[in-house]
Protein backbone atom coordinates (compact mmCIF):
# COMPACT_ATOMS: atom_id res chain seq x y z
CA UNK A 1 0.00 0.00 0.00
CA UNK A 2 1.41 3.31 -0.98
CA UNK A 3 0.80 4.88 2.43
CA UNK A 4 3.30 2.71 4.18
CA UNK A 5 5.67 2.84 1.25
CA UNK A 6 5.78 6.61 1.41
CA UNK A 7 7.00 6.65 4.98
CA UNK A 8 10.40 4.98 5.02
CA UNK A 9 11.22 6.78 1.77
CA UNK A 10 10.41 10.14 3.26
CA UNK A 11 12.41 9.35 6.34
CA UNK A 12 15.44 8.34 4.35
CA UNK A 13 15.18 11.54 2.35
CA UNK A 14 15.20 13.51 5.53
CA UNK A 15 18.21 11.72 6.94
CA UNK A 16 19.94 12.05 3.59
CA UNK A 17 19.44 15.76 3.46
CA UNK A 18 21.57 16.07 6.54
CA UNK A 19 24.41 14.57 4.53
CA UNK A 20 24.62 11.35 6.46
CA UNK A 21 24.93 8.37 4.20
CA UNK A 22 24.98 4.86 5.67
CA UNK A 23 28.75 4.94 5.91
CA UNK A 24 28.98 8.39 7.44
CA UNK A 25 26.89 7.57 10.44
CA UNK A 26 29.68 6.11 12.52
CA UNK A 27 31.69 9.28 12.20
CA UNK A 28 28.95 11.40 13.76
CA UNK A 29 29.45 12.84 17.21
CA UNK A 30 26.91 12.32 19.96
CA UNK A 31 25.17 15.58 19.02
CA UNK A 32 24.83 14.57 15.40
CA UNK A 33 23.48 11.16 16.26
CA UNK A 34 20.95 12.75 18.59
CA UNK A 35 19.85 15.18 15.89
CA UNK A 36 19.51 12.31 13.44
CA UNK A 37 17.45 10.29 15.93
CA UNK A 38 15.13 13.24 16.56
CA UNK A 39 14.82 13.85 12.83
CA UNK A 40 13.92 10.22 12.21
CA UNK A 41 11.27 10.42 14.92
CA UNK A 42 9.53 13.56 13.78
CA UNK A 43 10.22 13.02 10.07
CA UNK A 44 7.50 10.54 9.08
CA UNK A 45 4.63 12.51 10.61
CA UNK A 46 5.94 15.78 9.20
CA UNK A 47 6.51 14.33 5.74
CA UNK A 48 3.08 12.75 5.77
CA UNK A 49 1.26 15.97 6.64
CA UNK A 50 3.40 17.92 4.17
CA UNK A 51 2.75 15.48 1.34
CA UNK A 52 -0.89 14.67 2.00
CA UNK A 53 -2.17 17.96 3.36
CA UNK A 54 0.02 20.88 2.34
CA UNK A 55 0.67 19.60 -1.18
CA UNK A 56 -3.04 18.90 -1.75
CA UNK A 57 -3.90 22.38 -0.47
CA UNK A 58 -1.34 23.84 -2.91
CA UNK A 59 -2.80 21.85 -5.83
CA UNK A 60 -6.25 22.91 -4.71
CA UNK A 61 -5.14 26.54 -4.69
CA UNK A 62 -3.57 26.24 -8.15
CA UNK A 63 -6.84 24.81 -9.46
CA UNK A 64 -8.60 27.96 -8.30
CA UNK A 65 -6.34 29.92 -10.68
CA UNK A 66 -6.79 27.58 -13.65
CA UNK A 67 -9.62 26.88 -16.07
CA UNK A 68 -11.85 24.02 -17.15
CA UNK A 69 -11.98 23.29 -20.87
CA UNK A 70 -13.88 20.30 -22.26
CA UNK A 71 -14.10 18.76 -18.79
CA UNK A 72 -10.30 18.95 -18.45
CA UNK A 73 -8.48 21.26 -16.08
CA UNK A 74 -5.92 23.24 -18.06
CA UNK A 75 -3.21 25.47 -16.61
CA UNK A 76 -4.44 28.74 -18.04
CA UNK A 77 -3.84 31.30 -15.33
CA UNK A 78 -6.81 33.52 -14.60
CA UNK A 79 -8.81 35.05 -11.78
CA UNK A 80 -12.23 34.51 -13.33
CA UNK A 81 -13.39 32.09 -10.65
CA UNK A 82 -12.51 34.58 -7.91
CA UNK A 83 -14.12 37.42 -9.83
CA UNK A 84 -17.26 35.37 -10.13
CA UNK A 85 -17.21 34.39 -6.46
CA UNK A 86 -16.92 38.02 -5.38
CA UNK A 87 -19.14 39.78 -7.91
CA UNK A 88 -21.87 37.31 -8.89
CA UNK A 89 -24.95 38.19 -6.88
CA UNK A 90 -25.93 34.63 -6.04
CA UNK A 91 -22.43 33.83 -4.77
CA UNK A 92 -22.29 37.01 -2.73
CA UNK A 93 -25.61 36.21 -1.14
CA UNK A 94 -24.38 32.69 -0.48
CA UNK A 95 -21.20 33.93 1.17
CA UNK A 96 -23.09 36.44 3.27
CA UNK A 97 -25.57 33.79 4.35
CA UNK A 98 -22.69 31.50 5.27
CA UNK A 99 -21.11 34.21 7.41
CA UNK A 100 -24.40 34.95 9.15
CA UNK A 101 -25.01 31.30 9.96
CA UNK A 102 -21.41 30.56 10.94
CA UNK A 103 -21.36 33.76 13.00
CA UNK A 104 -24.58 32.89 14.81
CA UNK A 105 -23.61 29.27 15.41
CA UNK A 106 -20.08 30.08 16.60
CA UNK A 107 -21.26 32.82 18.96
CA UNK A 108 -23.92 30.53 20.38
CA UNK A 109 -21.40 27.69 20.75
CA UNK A 110 -18.60 29.73 22.28
CA UNK A 111 -21.06 31.53 24.56
CA UNK A 112 -22.67 28.35 25.86
CA UNK A 113 -19.29 26.62 26.07
CA UNK A 114 -17.95 29.50 28.16
CA UNK A 115 -21.01 29.49 30.41
CA UNK A 116 -20.64 25.74 30.85
CA UNK A 117 -16.90 25.85 31.58
CA UNK A 118 -17.39 28.82 33.92
CA UNK A 119 -20.12 26.96 35.81
CA UNK A 120 -17.86 23.93 36.14
CA UNK A 121 -14.89 25.97 37.26
CA UNK A 122 -16.64 28.17 39.81
CA UNK A 123 -19.98 26.61 40.75
CA UNK A 124 -19.69 22.84 40.39
CA UNK A 125 -16.04 22.29 41.17
CA UNK A 126 -16.46 18.86 42.64
CA UNK A 127 -18.19 17.64 39.51
CA UNK A 128 -15.76 19.11 37.00
CA UNK A 129 -14.20 15.88 35.80
CA UNK A 130 -17.35 13.81 35.20
CA UNK A 131 -19.17 16.73 33.58
CA UNK A 132 -16.23 17.54 31.33
CA UNK A 133 -15.99 13.88 30.44
CA UNK A 134 -19.67 13.90 29.43
CA UNK A 135 -18.85 16.68 26.97
CA UNK A 136 -15.88 14.73 25.60
CA UNK A 137 -18.18 11.76 25.00
CA UNK A 138 -20.58 14.07 23.17
CA UNK A 139 -17.64 15.26 21.07
CA UNK A 140 -16.90 11.74 19.90
CA UNK A 141 -20.49 10.60 19.44
CA UNK A 142 -21.64 10.91 15.90
CA UNK A 143 -21.21 13.98 13.73
CA UNK A 144 -23.68 12.80 11.12
CA UNK A 145 -26.01 11.46 13.81
CA UNK A 146 -26.13 14.80 15.60
CA UNK A 147 -27.34 16.40 12.39
CA UNK A 148 -29.82 14.00 10.91
CA UNK A 149 -31.44 13.10 14.25
CA UNK A 150 -32.90 16.61 14.33
CA UNK A 151 -35.19 15.54 11.52
CA UNK A 152 -36.65 12.92 13.82
CA UNK A 153 -36.73 15.38 16.70
CA UNK A 154 -38.14 18.44 14.95
CA UNK A 155 -39.67 17.18 11.69
CA UNK A 156 -43.37 17.41 10.86
CA UNK A 157 -44.00 13.92 12.23
CA UNK A 158 -41.13 14.18 14.70
CA UNK A 159 -41.03 13.90 18.46
CA UNK A 160 -41.67 17.54 19.31
CA UNK A 161 -44.56 17.95 16.90
CA UNK A 162 -46.12 14.62 17.92
CA UNK A 163 -45.89 15.60 21.56
CA UNK A 164 -47.45 19.02 20.92
CA UNK A 165 -50.26 17.41 18.95
CA UNK A 166 -50.74 14.69 21.54
CA UNK A 167 -51.08 17.29 24.28
CA UNK A 168 -53.60 19.19 22.17
CA UNK A 169 -51.45 22.31 22.02
CA UNK A 170 -51.26 22.39 18.24
CA UNK A 171 -53.37 20.78 15.54
CA UNK A 172 -50.98 21.37 12.64
CA UNK A 173 -47.27 20.48 12.84
CA UNK A 174 -44.99 23.46 13.45
CA UNK A 175 -43.01 23.42 10.22
CA UNK A 176 -40.77 26.37 11.11
CA UNK A 177 -38.74 24.12 13.40
CA UNK A 178 -36.64 22.77 10.53
CA UNK A 179 -35.26 23.73 7.14
CA UNK A 180 -34.34 27.33 7.79
CA UNK A 181 -31.45 29.47 8.96
CA UNK A 182 -32.35 29.22 12.64
CA UNK A 183 -32.45 25.43 12.48
CA UNK A 184 -29.03 25.41 10.78
CA UNK A 185 -27.58 27.57 13.58
CA UNK A 186 -29.01 25.42 16.37
CA UNK A 187 -27.89 22.14 14.78
CA UNK A 188 -24.40 23.50 14.06
CA UNK A 189 -24.16 24.61 17.69
CA UNK A 190 -25.16 21.12 18.76
CA UNK A 191 -21.96 19.57 17.49
CA UNK A 192 -19.72 22.64 17.87
CA UNK A 193 -20.34 23.15 21.61
CA UNK A 194 -18.30 20.10 22.71
CA UNK A 195 -15.40 21.25 20.51
CA UNK A 196 -15.63 24.73 22.01
CA UNK A 197 -15.75 23.62 25.65
CA UNK A 198 -12.23 22.19 25.98
CA UNK A 199 -10.19 25.31 25.05
CA UNK A 200 -12.36 27.55 27.24
CA UNK A 201 -12.14 25.11 30.12
CA UNK A 202 -8.36 24.98 29.77
CA UNK A 203 -8.20 28.79 29.73
CA UNK A 204 -10.33 29.05 32.87
CA UNK A 205 -7.90 26.77 34.67
CA UNK A 206 -5.40 29.61 34.28
CA UNK A 207 -7.61 31.87 36.37
CA UNK A 208 -6.40 31.19 39.88
CA UNK A 209 -8.51 31.62 42.98
CA UNK A 210 -5.91 33.97 44.44
CA UNK A 211 -6.37 36.35 41.53
CA UNK A 212 -10.14 36.38 41.98
CA UNK A 213 -9.79 36.95 45.72
CA UNK A 214 -7.27 39.72 45.18
CA UNK A 215 -9.69 41.51 42.86
CA UNK A 216 -12.47 41.11 45.45
CA UNK A 217 -10.23 42.41 48.23
CA UNK A 218 -9.37 45.42 46.13
CA UNK A 219 -13.06 46.28 45.92
CA UNK A 220 -14.17 44.71 42.66
CA UNK A 221 -17.77 43.47 42.52
CA UNK A 222 -18.72 40.25 40.74
CA UNK A 223 -19.06 42.03 37.41
CA UNK A 224 -15.87 43.98 37.87
CA UNK A 225 -13.96 40.83 38.72
CA UNK A 226 -15.44 39.08 35.73
CA UNK A 227 -14.62 41.80 33.20
CA UNK A 228 -11.26 42.79 34.60
CA UNK A 229 -9.85 39.47 35.76
CA UNK A 230 -11.67 36.38 34.51
CA UNK A 231 -12.55 37.52 30.99
CA UNK A 232 -9.10 38.89 30.03
CA UNK A 233 -7.35 35.81 31.43
CA UNK A 234 -9.73 33.45 29.64
CA UNK A 235 -9.86 35.49 26.43
CA UNK A 236 -7.27 33.48 24.46
CA UNK A 237 -9.25 30.29 25.13
CA UNK A 238 -12.59 31.91 24.35
CA UNK A 239 -11.18 33.35 21.14
CA UNK A 240 -9.71 30.01 20.08
CA UNK A 241 -13.00 28.22 20.77
CA UNK A 242 -14.99 30.75 18.83
CA UNK A 243 -12.56 30.84 15.89
CA UNK A 244 -12.47 27.04 15.68
CA UNK A 245 -16.27 26.91 15.75
CA UNK A 246 -16.54 29.69 13.17
CA UNK A 247 -14.20 27.95 10.71
CA UNK A 248 -15.85 24.57 11.21
CA UNK A 249 -19.30 26.11 10.72
CA UNK A 250 -18.30 28.16 7.67
CA UNK A 251 -16.94 25.02 6.02
CA UNK A 252 -19.79 22.72 6.90
CA UNK A 253 -21.68 20.78 4.29
CA UNK A 254 -23.95 18.38 6.15
CA UNK A 255 -26.00 20.85 8.21
CA UNK A 256 -27.07 23.15 5.36
CA UNK A 257 -27.68 20.10 3.20
CA UNK A 258 -29.82 18.19 5.69
CA UNK A 259 -31.58 20.80 7.83
CA UNK A 260 -30.76 24.21 6.33
CA UNK A 261 -33.58 24.47 3.81
CA UNK A 262 -33.75 27.29 1.28
CA UNK A 263 -32.53 30.23 3.39
CA UNK A 264 -30.15 28.07 5.41
CA UNK A 265 -27.90 27.16 2.52
CA UNK A 266 -24.16 27.67 2.76
CA UNK A 267 -21.01 27.72 0.65
CA UNK A 268 -20.17 24.12 1.55
CA UNK A 269 -23.17 22.79 -0.36
CA UNK A 270 -22.25 24.70 -3.51
CA UNK A 271 -18.56 23.74 -3.26
CA UNK A 272 -19.57 20.09 -2.97
CA UNK A 273 -21.88 20.41 -5.98
CA UNK A 274 -19.16 21.96 -8.10
CA UNK A 275 -16.92 18.99 -7.28
CA UNK A 276 -19.44 16.19 -7.42
CA UNK A 277 -21.89 17.17 -10.15
CA UNK A 278 -20.43 20.08 -12.19
CA UNK A 279 -16.81 18.86 -12.12
CA UNK A 280 -15.84 22.52 -12.14
CA UNK A 281 -12.89 22.23 -9.75
CA UNK A 282 -11.59 25.80 -10.35
CA UNK A 283 -14.90 27.35 -9.35
CA UNK A 284 -15.24 25.17 -6.26
CA UNK A 285 -11.65 25.84 -5.25
CA UNK A 286 -12.03 29.61 -5.70
CA UNK A 287 -15.21 29.54 -3.60
CA UNK A 288 -13.44 27.57 -0.89
CA UNK A 289 -10.46 29.92 -0.75
CA UNK A 290 -12.68 32.99 -0.85
CA UNK A 291 -14.62 31.59 2.11
CA UNK A 292 -11.40 30.77 3.94
CA UNK A 293 -9.98 34.24 3.30
CA UNK A 294 -13.17 36.01 4.39
CA UNK A 295 -13.39 33.81 7.50
CA UNK A 296 -9.76 34.40 8.44
CA UNK A 297 -10.22 38.15 7.95
CA UNK A 298 -13.20 38.16 10.29
CA UNK A 299 -11.28 36.05 12.80
CA UNK A 300 -8.33 38.45 12.58
CA UNK A 301 -10.56 41.45 13.23
CA UNK A 302 -12.21 39.77 16.22
CA UNK A 303 -8.82 38.87 17.63
CA UNK A 304 -7.59 42.45 17.27
CA UNK A 305 -10.70 44.05 18.74
CA UNK A 306 -11.09 41.47 21.50
CA UNK A 307 -7.45 41.88 22.53
CA UNK A 308 -7.94 45.66 22.77
CA UNK A 309 -11.19 45.53 24.72
CA UNK A 310 -10.26 42.80 27.21
CA UNK A 311 -6.99 43.96 28.63
Amino acid sequence: MSVTEARPGATAARGGRRGQGPGGRRRLGAGGRRALALGLQVGPATAFVAFFLLAPLVVFFLYSLWRVRDYEIVAEWNLDAYKQALTDDSYRRLLWNTIKIAGGASLLSAGLAFAFAHTLRFKLRRWQEPLLFAVVIAMFSGYLVRVYAWRTLLGDSGIVNSALRGLGITSEPLSFLLFNRGAAIVVLANFLIPLAVLPVYAALQNVRDAEIEAARDLGCGSWGTFWRVTAPLAWPGIFFSWALAFLAAAGDYVVPQLVGGANGTMVGVVITDTFQTDYNFPRGAALAFTTLLVSLTIIGIVRFVGGKVLR
Partner: peptide, 22 residues
Protein backbone atom coordinates in the same frame (compact mmCIF):
# COMPACT_ATOMS: atom_id res chain seq x y z
CA UNK B 1 1.84 25.02 14.64
CA UNK B 2 2.32 22.79 11.60
CA UNK B 3 0.47 19.90 13.22
CA UNK B 4 -2.45 22.15 14.19
CA UNK B 5 -3.20 22.82 10.50
CA UNK B 6 -5.24 19.63 9.99
CA UNK B 7 -7.30 20.54 13.06
CA UNK B 8 -8.28 24.04 11.94
CA UNK B 9 -8.74 23.57 8.20
CA UNK B 10 -12.40 22.57 7.75
CA UNK B 11 -12.74 18.89 6.86
CA UNK B 12 -14.61 19.81 3.69
CA UNK B 13 -11.55 21.67 2.41
CA UNK B 14 -9.25 18.78 3.31
CA UNK B 15 -11.65 16.48 1.46
CA UNK B 16 -11.84 18.48 -1.76
CA UNK B 17 -8.10 19.27 -1.63
CA UNK B 18 -7.31 15.56 -1.31
CA UNK B 19 -9.74 14.79 -4.14
CA UNK B 20 -8.00 17.35 -6.37
CA UNK B 21 -4.58 16.05 -5.39
CA UNK B 22 -5.37 12.36 -5.82
Amino acid sequence: GFFVVPMVVPALFIGVALLSFF
